[in-house]
Nucleic acid binder design. Structure first.
Lengths: 102, 102
DNA sequence: TTACTTGGTTACTTTATGTAAGTAATTATA
DNA sequence: TATAATTACTTACATAAAGTAACCAAGTAA
């Protein structure tokens, strides 16, 4: 009866429309970053950031690398799959510049 | 210290990362639709759809037109500002086709 | 009069998110 | 030696958002 939405598109939307996910990806587009940098960069709580990074890692969008320095350094970065989200971010940027007031 | 995120981009993200918002806009890209069509089309609850449509109307993204027929018909459609979101949806579609499994 | 339809709203439950404190590991400082 | 500092979390609890189901008003139609 109703033409249904493509499940892959729906899944992409489910990922991207989680609160903070977009901003985390946007933040990581400027390069690998550690937990506390992302946290203070976008104003997310540690509890939720931890949860989101795990989700994004499970989706294969984010990589997590541990450097056993002192104190330990853990770097989060975008995988190829994650970097491929850049055009979406660029379009959101374009739209916001054209249609939102300062 | 940390280069902060552009407030317009952040606002766009706040709008788009609300649950259901993306799917509602995607649904309306195929043309004006009434409440119950959107509702069954994306599987959102009436309570939240009502809330979202009000938000999107306030943002100037969605237009609401009442046709006093019987029973009343109310059509929701995308404004110019709303239609301008299409490139974002296309990019999400592209990404989902390239990177998500069926 | 009762029933049907649309586009909602209301009350209540469940889930998600925010807040603040706590933890483990490792080193630096008093 | 005890205390403190740092990072990357986790835990417990409070609040906000979303899901569910019942209800409502307006306007017919049977």
């Amino acid at each position: 009866m109703d033409k249904s939405i493509c499940p892959r598109f729906e899944k992409a939307m489910t990922i991207l429309s989680q609160r903070w996910t977009g901003l985390i990806i946007y933040q990581l587009l400027s390069g690998p970053q550690r937990f506390c940098t992302i946290e203070s960069g976008i104003g997310i709580s540690g509890r939720v950031l931890s949860e989101r990074l795990k989700d994004l890692e499970n989706e294969g969008i984010v990589n997590r690398i541990v450097y056993p320095e002192t104190p330990v350094r853990i770097e989060y970065s975008l995988s190829e799959k994650g970097k491929a989200l850049e055009p979406i971010m660029k379009e959101i940027e374009n739209w916001s510049q054209s249609w939102l007031e300062r």
